[in-house]
Simulated assay, not measured.
Amino acid sequence: MENLANYFNQYINQKRIVVTGGTTGIGKAIAELLVSLGGRVIIFGRDENDFNHAMEDIKTKSSSGEIYGVTADITSKKDIDLVWDKVDSLLGGIDIVINNAALPARGIIEGDYDDWKYILETNILGYIAFAKEAVNRMKEQKSGHIVNIGSMSAEVKEKTGVIYVATKTAIRGFSTALRKEINPLGIKVSHVEPGAVTSDMQPDPKEVQEEKIEKMEMLEAEDIAMSVLFCLSQPKRCDIVSMQVRPHLQII
């Protein structure tokens, strides 16, 4: 095989990419990696401070690609339209969508209707809405790739995260059915399910998360970014349909 740097670069360089929830955690790590390989990337998130920090950090670390973005909430149709207006005007189209924006949620005893509605609109409807807009554009060029970031919660179905489990189980089914619908259009769909990953979504403080990483009980966001890159870096004939990525000692 040719030099690996060149191998990955050919699949990412100058590709037009959107990463939803790209301002923190897994999304930011994915955006940073793809920009470093020459990708033209748009990120967005709902928190302005997180957005500004992510933009500055990514720009500082790499000048190979391009990074753009906007503060936006994926539950807002107006904000979704704003992001796609930027995609069309700044990138001139789309090649890759990373559906990643999601919120944590606990059991059904906690929370109320309005909390759940916002979480479902973020974790499920946001994925569907962005996939729809991507497909509208990708079908014209008969190519593209949608990567849906799910969670091992869809398999474990822990009792402490009933609402989150419901959303990530939905994403598992959505990804499977979506691939059947749009593969004939030349569009790939990959579904990546991380295990425990260090992030602001974790209930443990940063110090405890770092200890778990050392003990091989937790992944870093960069581990998932590399897994996504593997999905994106396959020849047209090859689809990575589903991938589960777990810490070595997270026994599920």
Results as ranks from 00 to 15, higher is better:
V87P: 03
D88A: 15
S89L: 09
L90I: 13
G93C: 04
I94H: 00
I96E: 10
N100H: 11
A102W: 01
L103M: 14
A105M: 13
I109R: 12
I109V: 10
E110T: 14
Y113A: 15
Y113F: 11
D115W: 10
L120F: 15
E121Y: 07
T122W: 12
G126M: 06
Y127N: 14
A129G: 03
A129C: 02
A131P: 04
E133R: 10
V135W: 02
V135D: 05
M138Y: 04
M138K: 11
K142D: 09
G144D: 13
H145D: 07
H145Q: 05
I146H: 11
V147W: 05
N148V: 03
A154K: 08
A154H: 12
K157L: 10
K159F: 02
G161C: 07
I163M: 13
Y164W: 08
V165K: 09
A166F: 11
A166Y: 05
T167F: 01
T169P: 02
R172A: 12
R172H: 07
R172W: 08
G173K: 14
G173C: 07
F174H: 05
F174N: 07
F174C: 00
F174R: 14
S175F: 00
S175T: 07
A177H: 10
L178G: 02
R179Q: 04
E181R: 01
N183Q: 12
L185W: 10
I187A: 10
I187R: 03
K188S: 05
K188D: 09
V189R: 02
S190I: 06
H191T: 02
H191V: 08
P194H: 11
P194C: 07
G195V: 03
A196Y: 05
T198F: 04
T198L: 15
D200R: 09
